[in-house]
Amino acid sequence: MSSISVSTTVNGDPVDFVCTPDESLLDALRNRMGLTGAKEGCGTGDCGACSVTLNGRLVCSCLVLAAEAEGAEIATVEGMAGPEGLHPLQRAFIDHAALQCGVCTPGILVAAKALLERNPDPSDEEVRYWLAGNLCRCTGYDKIVRAVQAAAAEMRSA
């Protein structure tokens, strides 16, 4: 298998990496770029722990070939906090105890951010359906929904 050279943008920064043709974007992020925030919970798109955005669309990075990142814009959990501090969602997740083990948290934060960018005032049901592809085994989702709503309210009033 000959390697492929890829030029892409991750969290606003230009990144070049080399990958094999069958390598997933998740593996490239974790093993080539050292961005281990996205997790592999299943490798088959069923758990959402590897969620990132690709050209603004929420995707499972385990279901994207690394080679497809050529020329794309990728955003991961590592890019959520800015120089001014944590993203409101990140703060809300801590304040509302919306994480226990925390391994699903990066994926859920990326997914919730994508939701609030499209729908700043979602109903609880919309939050739950949007996040249905992000499994959390610890919290029962209750505090996650509350944290997303708290962050949404804060972002609306900002």
Partner: peptide, 21 residues
């Protein structure tokens, strides 16, 4: 009381190191 957990920031920023990391 309900203070923020000490490992919270690591876990919401992707810095926390899990088994495969």
């Amino acid at each position: 009381t309900r203070p923020p957990r000490p490992d919270g920031v690591d876990k919401v920023t992707g810095r926390a190191q899990y088994g495969a990391d």
